[in-house]
Design a protein around this nucleic acid. Structure first.
Lengths: 345, 345
DNA sequence: TGGTTTCAGGGAAGCGCTTCCATAAAACTT
DNA sequence: AAGTTTTATGGAAGCGCTTCCCTGAAACCA
């Protein structure tokens, strides 16, 4: 039978209120009494029941996070930084993972109404206007990460700009025939990265060729952001083009790995036959020499938590929306290093 | 102001008990009343307060999981399967991540006494006898995954056997000079994999050379199981040996990637100059042609959840301990395919 | 010295549920 | 028709806390 506040009160010869005051660092308690109660608490190995506290306080010190079926580097890294930031603030994390998209709304409803958490972090998930409304009505602070909704505080990577910069880089290196492998357009970042890509082409008066754009098949929840989808997309690109682009912007590093595999199988050398720039800067990008856009993932997680906790404290910035800039990391796959070497020699 | 069971009761013109019975599929209620109450519930968008339910029921439908600072493939995959299995059983997951090992005991204490969860899953973390005792006393069902304690239900990969099989394979392919790159020996799997490695050598009357064993530096919580550590270890191995082994068993795939990078820099071809077998079968192993031991991670997560939920139901197997077998996946890095090819020609 | 303020502490009420007990009505008995 | 069982329901008690209100003692004031 677990020990309750009554047990402590009885053994210490005080009232339950006093025990509670001793635990909660109240000013309304004699230091001597407090010390005594704390001693008894230690003796009995008493620990307050978190749920009872939450219920009485109307505050849970818990954050709910809703994540799509996470499996890739991006989520892990993000979760890791979120977890670290929360733990620094003595908050716990409860994880709602969306395995099937058709259960998304059910999950959001639960998060919203079950009141297990003081705030909600939504990762990489689009939120319908209906649910945005619900969230606002519910008064629960919500921050969306890696996606956005005009009515909800959002933090994203500057996807359009990142894609623009990546493409711009390929152009600077000298490429004029550039294609793109993108994730499925049901993904918000996929859309923006395509926009950035097109914009860079346009500003440089290069033509966008539809047959050089390959959209990956969407497997549930991943929007085609995986190695296999990249591989298949590259295969398709190769088979349906007699004339190939000299460079590709690939919407994510994992896809780029698949692209590399397909290229290798087709006997294409990277970057000589085809240059590549990815997006994400996963750990392995360095390993395979993939040039890519580095995302400040940890910073994003930290910022999301900071902002959410502020909102919970009652601070309210209206229409909070932040874009974190992605940064180009030049490695071998884009050909810039070789180009540079050749220039120097 | 959130709607409570009283609001529903009043509007439906029934007592709170009846509302509760309607929610909880009690048999003790008139179907017509139930339908009526359910209708009101829908109208008011009522949803029970999870914490209040938990407190009253003395049951939380939540599982706590304690994970070391996860960042690698293994944990993600494991968490993913655990999450899926829990969600199928309508359990929620609360995540306690251990950032600093010195906070491990504090965290375990909290998990133990705060009673937020009906059961605990501990991942890849050693549990001291003291805490094992505490867990047993507390009556909270606990399952340890990827580690073990004689007094607590544990599920692990057959590390020793897996390492044995990997080494055995290298021997069968014809290698007699075999080294090993291991994680830091503060890691339980690292110890067992080393044992399996030695055992295979011994059974084949091959000598174990200490200078061919390289232990990775332990970064916090990771026990050297990362790419950079593998790279550095390989560098060390190369610099301190004039005569190199012809094959290496590497304790994890991520490390093997580092090993490959260092080998490449040193101008060594894989598998011709040095053959490699890894452990884990991460997604990228296929990409780089790494032969490795495949771990049934998803199965492990599923099994851990199944077992834990059974324990929560009251079913108790004494001294439950399961080893899941790792399976050899032959790719290019071990040289077996070439050997085979040569044989055929 | 008596009155006023301050400080500590006791414990009831309340957080939002479940569950049990009591009861009234309905459905069977004979 | 009266007695017995069954079924449905209302609502108090209790889960383990926090918080507020109240009281008694101590400290201060004139």
């Amino acid at each position: 039978m677990p020990v309750t506040i009554y047990d402590v009160a009885k053994k210490a010869g005080v009232g339950i209120g006093t025990v509670s005051r001793a635990i909660n660092n109240s000013a309304q308690i004699n230091p001597a009494t407090k010390a005594h109660v704390l001693k008894i608490i230690k003796e009995l190995h008493y620990q307050p029941h978190a749920l009872a506290q939450s219920l009485a306080r109307k505050k849970t010190f818990t954050i709910a996070s809703v994540v799509p079926f996470f499996t890739n580097y991006f989520f892990v890294e993000l979760l890791k930084s979120v977890q670290a930031a929360l733990s620094n603030n003595n908050y716990d994390l409860i994880l709602y993972s969306i395995n099937r998209m058709d259960r998304r709304d059910t999950t959001l409803d639960r998060v919203l109404t079950e009141r297990r958490a003081d705030g909600v972090l939504i990762f990489s998930l689009g939120v319908s206007d209906e649910y945005a409304e619900k969230f606002i009505d519910s008064q629960i602070p919500v921050v969306i990460v890696d996606h956005m909704h005009p009515q909800i505080d959002s933090i994203v990577i500057a996807n359009r700009e990142g894609a623009y910069l990546a493409t711009q880089h390929l152009i600077q290196v000298g490429h004029e025939q550039i294609g793109m492998i993108d994730g499925h357009l049901s993904s918000y970042p996929a859309i923006l990265r395509l926009e950035g890509f097109k914009q860079a082409l346009q500003e440089n008066h290069l033509t966008f060729y539809d047959q050089w754009l390959e959209i990956c098949d969407a497997r549930v929840g991943e929007h085609g952001f995986n190695e296999a989808a990249g591989y298949k997309a590259m295969k398709r690109l190769l088979s349906r083009n007699s004339r190939l682009p000299t460079a590709l912007f690939v919407a994510s590093d994992v896809q780029a790995l698949g692209v590399m595999r397909a290229a290798k199988e087709a006997g294409l050398r990277i970057p000589d036959d085809i240059a590549l720039v990815g997006f994400d800067d996963i750990e392995l990008a360095k390993f395979v020499g993939l040039s890519t856009m580095h995302q400040p993932i940890a910073q994003m997680g930290q910022m999301a938590v900071d902002h959410l906790l502020q909102r919970i404290q009652g601070v309210h910035h209206n229409g909070f929306y932040t874009e974190l800039k992605a940064k180009l990391i030049v490695r071998e796959s884009c050909g810039a290093k070789q180009a540079f070497r050749v220039q120097v020699e």
